[in-house]
Amino acid sequence: MVSLNIFRLALTLICLTSLSLVSSAPTSNATSADLSPKASEILARATPSAPHFVIYSDKFVSGLTGPPPVAQVTGYNVFALSFLLIEGAFDKAIEWTWLSASERASVKAEYAAAGIKLIVSVFGATDAPTSTGADPISTANTMAAWVKEFDLDGIDVDYEDFNAINAGDGKAEAWLVSFTRQLRTQLPQGTFILTHAPVAPWFSPGRFGGGAYLTVDQQVGSLIDWYNVQFYNQGTSEYTTCDGLLSTSSSTWPKTALFQIAASGIPLSKLVIGKPATTGDASNGFMSTATLAGCLQQAKGRGWNAGVMVWEFPDAAASWIRDVRSQAFPE
């Protein structure tokens, strides 16, 4: 994904009583009225179950600061403000900070009522954290603190340090593993969303010396809620038919179609299919909404239901996801 490059500290520790309430939430008969305000807040923020309908937002939109009105993104359940970089927030992420605390609270309430989580996406195409020598622990701490300071529901790791992955020496994978583990110490699972957005080829067995995302998943996959897989920007004919997207990828990036990735050990339930909204939102990999809707229907018929991701608002909005969901996940 491409950053446009336009340009409350950590929350109070939750008491042990609140933590015990949260951990028992799935089987408890307690209502929100029985819980402390902090416990109720955590339960409301808990990781949503599949399917996930994710939309990124990085473009400047005249007259709009921060997320759009809910009506414009009806049909999605995750909205990703992009991007938070090592040097700070930019684009839609910094716009979020421009809103007052009361304005942010109002937006959060509106989105929560519509069942939409607000998260921040980090890095993108602008940052190369491994190659530039960023420390994974301090970077994770800083970014997690930003998420909590500005009261978001989680974080998406859009790591695009291609040189580091291509080096094949395992340093990129080790960086991502350390970064992810530290994020989880600061943003506990079940309380905050933590996703990654790898390009599909990074799941190709034997193509990268360090194992790319197969290694990442083996080591910290249990800490990652799902993958917003970028099935685009990888070649003019890659992932542009239902067969190429779902069943059999080309020899250029072998075994990286959806069900091939699952066959390599990645949980099918975590593989969200990512696509660009228009031909202008990516170099290649675009599918029309009608074609993509048909592919999703095929995939669901084979046991998949993880959901779909799109890059980006406002090129995609409520009508885009309505059309894409129409056959497999009608509203």
Score class of each variant (00 low, 15 high):
Gln230Ser: 08
Ala306Trp: 00
Ala125Glu: 12
Asp225Thr: 03
Asn29Arg: 15
Leu246Cys: 03
Gly170Lys: 05
Asp281Arg: 03
Asp281Ser: 12
Glu173Cys: 08
Ala167Cys: 08
Ser251Lys: 13
Pro314Leu: 06
Val61Ala: 08
Trp320Ser: 00
Glu238Val: 07
Ile119Arg: 00
Leu214Met: 04
Thr291Gly: 12
Gln297Ser: 13
Ser36Trp: 07
Pro37Gly: 09
Asp91Phe: 07
Asn77Ser: 02
Ser269Thr: 13
Val120Pro: 00
Gly63Asp: 07
Glu149Val: 06
Gly307Pro: 02
Gly265His: 04
Thr241Met: 07
Tyr239His: 05
Ala290Ile: 11
Ser326Trp: 02
Trp175Glu: 03
Cys242Asp: 10
Val70Ala: 05
Pro67Gln: 04
Pro188Met: 09
Thr248Gln: 14
Met287Asn: 10
Val78Asp: 00
Thr185Tyr: 08
Glu173Pro: 03
Ile266Val: 14
Arg184Asn: 06
Ser57Arg: 09
Asp315Pro: 04
Ala282Pro: 03
Leu152Met: 08
Asn163Gln: 15
Leu268Ser: 08
Gly221Ala: 07
Pro314Cys: 08
Lys300Gln: 13
Asp58Cys: 15
Ser24Met: 12
Thr130Tyr: 09
Ser32Asn: 15
Trp253Gln: 09
Ser24Gln: 12
Gly168Cys: 06
Val157Pro: 00
Gly221Phe: 01
Ser288Tyr: 11
Asp156Pro: 01
Ser57Tyr: 11
Ser102His: 10
Asp156Ser: 03
Trp226Asn: 03
Met1Ala: 11
Ser100His: 05
Pro201Gln: 07
Tyr239Ala: 01
Ala318Gln: 11
Thr65Phe: 07
Ile266Ala: 04
Asp151Val: 00
Thr31Gln: 09
Ala164Gln: 01
Thr279Gly: 12
Pro267Phe: 08
Glu149Gln: 14
Glu173Asn: 07
Asp153Trp: 00
Tyr227Gln: 05
Gln72Ser: 15
Gln230Met: 09
Ala257Ile: 02
Leu223Asp: 06
Arg104Asp: 01
Pro188Thr: 10
Trp253Tyr: 14
Ser20Pro: 10
Thr65Pro: 08
Tyr239Val: 03
Gln72His: 11
Leu19Trp: 15
Val70Gly: 05
Gln219Val: 10
Gly209Thr: 06
Tyr76Leu: 04
Glu238Tyr: 10
Leu296Lys: 04
Ala101Glu: 11
Glu41Met: 10
Asp156Lys: 00
Leu13Asp: 15
Gly88His: 07
Ser319Gln: 13
Phe7Ile: 15
Thr279His: 09
Trp146Gln: 01
Met309His: 01
Leu64Cys: 11
Pro51Thr: 02
Gln298Cys: 09
Ala113Gly: 07
Tyr213Ser: 01
Ile155Leu: 11
Ile86Lys: 14
His196Leu: 02
Arg207Asp: 12
Trp146Lys: 04
Thr191Lys: 13
Thr180Gly: 05
Lys117Met: 00
Trp311Met: 03
Gly170Asn: 04
Ser102Ile: 11
Lys275Leu: 07
Ser138Glu: 12
Asp243Ile: 15
Phe60Thr: 15
Val324Ala: 08
Leu258Ala: 02
Ile14Tyr: 14
Leu223Met: 12
Ala114Tyr: 00
Asp243Glu: 13
Tyr159Asp: 01
Ser62Gly: 15
Pro198Val: 01
Ser131Phe: 05
Phe79Trp: 01
Ala145Asp: 13
Met143Pro: 03
Ala33Cys: 13
Asp127Glu: 06
Glu41His: 10
